[in-house]
Design a binder for these strands. Structure first.
Length: 670
RNA sequence: GCUGCUGUAGCUCAGUGGUAGAGCGCGUCAUUGGUAAUGACGAGGCCGGGAGUUCAAUUCUCCCUAGCAGCACCA
């Protein structure tokens, strides 16, 4: 007599099933609709194949496409397998390696056979077509347990050297599994090593819900020393509608691209001769100046004192700070000599001492701190600088304003006693909060904990991590609302750090603000203060920034607002546009009043139709267009057309001025 | 830095082994038009840089450089 298994379902009911039965059998027993919809199972909380037999009594929850997170994960993983199968079907001899689900899709790293070039964009349509065939064939996905040795032998026999290498490294004794697409060992079936779980068959995928996006190079195991593979990226969803929504989001991101908007709005440009450094145009620099004034007010109000330190310092200084040893490959160095310019020069002797452009402001701030004698009564000392730094970034890393080689930070260093660390950190949390709120950003705070490679004792790390954690708790921000999370291994080598991640209008996140407590640099540069006991003590140094860098923050603002930055930041806040040239004088009067009120405005007196002017200034993202015609002149009014609105509002000039003045006022001054 | 792709007018892009084209923008003229492109005419290019192949290179080959995508990097 066979034993019956007790399978408990989420509604609390219990079904008795014969031994050897599977979640699919349970689904079938409940009803044909569910049997069709079920794509996987959660058995005792673990996501599993729906066709995998129970091993005993179990709690079961059937997974359908309504369980979107699980369903997407499964579908993407399966798309990746189908992708690999398709590539091997088209080009036998292709080696497969690894293919996981990603945030919005999947990829698979493959190595083209020796007799053909790496796969390119032009191969994608054929691969997509083959993938659709595999999906439509509705091949069952069958799980099979293998021994490690058998698997290694199989991969070697198939010429799959990467897979063989990988299988050999999997822990011995663990049951290894493979999945077949099609019946095991049958002609036309395809196999991959995989932990699973998978959908019951390829036909559960929607052949219209994926798209191969691009190919890129990737290294075997992410290591440059290893073979270069071709990574084929796809985006995958549960249905065509979701796919289309995703493609539209990508389009939206492309529309917001700050490099494109920067050119269209004439904010800045980049060029070959200074790659990685920004040429700010008058319009773009107006945004910068407004941000800088804003941040100065914030920092002044927070008890910071602004300084300015040298751009170039002798290498000896960088040696002492540790940058020469740890960071030199990212530093621009220059010989400390006048080059010989005879015969085509410049020629350098190679014997001069080195100097370097500063990649960070911190050593210079310690130097300023060390001038004179500091008493504990003076602490905390908060030194701020709009510090212009140069970092010789890898060329492939450069990206518009987001990653540059010359940038200016809203930097500051707080020198304080051990006892003041938590309080200073808490204050910083509040300052950062007020800034991000002024821009309307939502953000999350993360604590990056000790990395494997680090300076200092575990006791120091325990303490430093606890201080930052407590400071955020005291600020009431270590909560779900603030996305509080601790990230093991992500800290700097000398200290843990708090990170502020902004979420932009289309859901992307950007790390901007940070605070790090540092006990290493004060030590290396021998910073001290005189304590209550009359002896020398070591201050703690807090490195902190809120914007991060002006360049990057402006890039984020452009993308977040799609160029339509708030009026107080807009380079041109209003344009006066007369309809006919008879009104030019009145337009001039209006402009004069705007300028007197401190509004950044101009008048468009060109011999163009009003349609043309509206279109042009709208494209330039000017927030307010003040249209004036005969009627407005007679009545002393303006017709305001606001960016993004179709209708205009006619109002008396004084009223318009009051409105614009209000909108043009920075949020901290309102 | 690695791999792939790209570099033609201010911008977006066509094109060709016999030194080039469009649209927008710009200039001139006409037009004075009520809320997202008025019309005509005109100017504007060392076809990223260097080398090679060729009678001839913007076009083919190689090297360099920058950009783009991804990877690696981002203390």
């Amino acid at each position: 007599m066979t034993e019956l298994l007790k399978i408990s379902l989420p509604d609390g009911s219990v079904r008795e099933m014969p031994e050897g039965s599977t979640p699919a059998d349970v689904a079938a027993a409940i009803g044909p609709g569910l049997a069709k919809a079920a794509i996987a199972a959660k058995v005792d909380g673990e996501l599993r194949d729906i066709g995998r037999p129970f091993e005993g009594d179990a709690e079961l929850a059937l997974v359908t496409n309504r369980d979107e997170d699980e369903a997407l994960e499964l579908a993407r993983h399966d798309f990746a397998h189908v992708l690999a199968e398709a590539v091997q079907a088209l080009w036998p001899g292709t080696q497969i390696t690894f293919g996981p689900a990603t945030e919005d899709g999947f990829y698979y790293d493959v190595m083209a056979p020796a007799d053909r070039a790496p796969f390119g964009m032009e191969d994608l349509p054929a691969i997509e077509e083959k993938m659709r065939e595999i999906i439509k064939a509705d091949k069952p996905l069958c799980r099979e347990a293998w021994s490690r040795q058998a698997l290694i032998d199989k991969w070697k026999a198939d010429g799959e050297s990467f897979k063989a290498e990988w299988a050999a490294e999997l822990p011995e004794g663990e049951e290894l599994t493979v999945y077949w697409s099609g019946a095991p060992n049958e002609e036309g079936s395809w196999m991959d090593m995989c932990r699973g779980p998978h959908l019951p068959s390829t036909g559960k995928l929607d052949p219209q819900a994926f798209k191969l996006m691009r190919v890129a190079g990737a290294y075997w195991r992410g290591d440059q020393a290893n073979a270069q593979l071709t990574r084929i990226y796809g985006t995958g969803w549960l249905n065509k509608k979701q796919l289309n929504q995703h493609l539209m989001r990508l389009e939206e991101a492309a529309k917001r691209d700050h490099r494109k908007l920067g050119r269209e709005m004439d904010l800045f440009h980049l060029q070959e001769e200074a790659h990685g450094s920004v040429f700010w145009h008058p319009q773009g620099y107006k945004i910068w100046r407004e941000l800088e004034s804003y941040m100065r007010r914030k920092m002044d109000g927070g008890g910071y004192r602004e300084i300015k330190t040298p751009q170039v310092m002798d290498a000896r200084q960088w040696e002492q700070s540790g940058h020469w040893g740890k960071y030199r490959e990212n530093m621009f160095v220059i010989p400390d000599e006048v080059p010989n310019t005879e015969d085509e020069g410049p020629v350098i002797s190679g014997e001069a001492d080195w100097m370097a452009l500063k990649p960070m402001n911190c050593p210079a701030h310690v130097i300023v701190f060390k001038q004179g004698i500091t008493s504990y009564r003076d602490l905390p000392i908060r030194l701020g600088e709009m510090g212009c730094c140069h970092r010789n970034e890898p060329h492939g890393a450069l990206h518009g304003l987001m990653r540059v080689r010359q940038f200016t930070q809203d930097d500051a260093h707080i020198f304080c006693t051990e006892d003041q660390v938590v309080e200073e950190t808490r204050k910083f949390c509040e300052l950062a909060d007020s800034v991000y709120k002024d821009f309307g950003f939502k953000y999350e705070i993360k604590l990056a904990l000790r990395p494997e490679q680090r300076f200092g004792s575990d006791a120091d790390w325990d303490k430093a991590e606890e201080e930052l954690r407590n400071a955020v708790k005291e600020a009431g921000m270590a909560t779900e609302e603030f996305g509080w999370e601790e990230l093991p291994g992500e800290g700097a080598f000398y200290a843990p750090k708090l990170e502020w991640h902004l979420t932009d209008a289309i859901g992307r996140t950007w790390q901007v603000g940070t605070i790090q407590s540092d006990r290493v640099l004060p030590e290396r540069l021998d910073a001290t203060y005189i304590g209550e006991d009359g002896g020398k003590h070591r201050p703690v140094m807090l490195h902190r920034a809120i914007f991060g860098s002006y360049e990057r923050f402006i890039g984020i603002l452009i993308e977040h607002f799609a160029g339509k930055v708030p009026v107080w930041l807009a380079p041109t806040q209003a344009v006066v546009a007369p309809i006919v040239s008879d009104i030019d004088d009145y337009a001039g009067e209006v402009l004069a009043k705007l300028e007197a009120a401190g509004i950044r405005a101009s008048a468009d007196l060109r011999n163009e139709k009003i349609n043309y002017k509206v279109r042009e200034h709208s494209l330039k993202k000017v927030p307010h267009l003040l249209v004036v015609g005969k009627r407005e002149q007679e009545e002393g009014t303006v017709a305001i057309r606001t960016l993004g609105e179709k209708d205009q509002r006619v109002m008396p000039l004084d009223e318009a001025l009051a409105m614009l003045t209000e909108e043009a006022t920075a949020p901290d001054l309102r």
